[in-house]
Amino acid sequence: MPQNEYIERWQKQSGKRYDYEERKRKRLAREGHKQSQDAQKFTGLRAKLYQKKRHAEKIQMKKRIRAHEQRNVKSSQSNESLSTPIPQYLLDRSQTAQAKALSSAIKNKRAEKAAKFSVPLPKVRGIAEEEMFKTVKTGKKTAKKSWKRMITKPTFVGSDFTRRPVKYERFIRPMGLRYKKANVTHPELGVTVQLPIISVKKNPQNPMYTQLGVLTKGTIIEVNVSELGLVTAGGKIVWGRWAQITNNCENDGCINACVGQFHSIFQVELTLGM
């Protein structure tokens, strides 16, 4: 009965096939032919999978080739810091590079300044009411007047919310679409954590949606960051921070958000709005 490393033992005793190496070499040599053959022959799902795989491989190959090529390229700036003096008519050449660096630095600075008062997603798609609401048509009177609406987007509903009597309830926020947590990315720290939502601060679509707690792309929410252990300049622990939703939650089944610096703008806007 063969037991343990019997394959190795066999090879030790009897050696490999006499043409083992040759076959291996030939197989390797024909690899390209086989790939070509496959690429032409496959149909349907197999073809799709194969092409996808091949596509990824090719990207990697090209990247590697580029990396190799870049290694060989001689850059013009490399011999810039020469100890030997340069004649006047050649001095101008390095000047352009310096000027470019300067201007880009200024641009960066401006962008940074602007970024302080910008949000990650400055523009959002408008959502029509028809898309947002579905008319509820149950019951005789409700159907006749069509005054009841169901919200078709994910919502945040506070823990202290109690429903109004059915007769007076105009908007229904379905249980299945209520969310309590968001995946929040901190771009400076470079981490993503799942944090509980505290409240919805601003829905850019409509102030009513803010009230209803609708979560759409671009909505500003307040999340509980106490787990992250952030500290303010004054040394106090930060426990709530604002974040903007960056994905279409209704399509993804989850909420992704990004924290940022948008206190001032929104404080002003919010005071104006309310």
Binding site: E131, K134, T152, P174, G176, L177, N248, E250, N251, D252, G253, C254
Partner: peptide, 20 residues
């Protein structure tokens, strides 16, 4: 996701949810 699919409003939304 089966639960979310019950609330999906359009073909596109259904497809995205399945994909997710």
């Amino acid at each position: 996701y089966v639960r979310l699919l019950k609330y999906a409003q359009s073909l596109f939304q259904c497809k995205q949810l399945k994909r997710a």
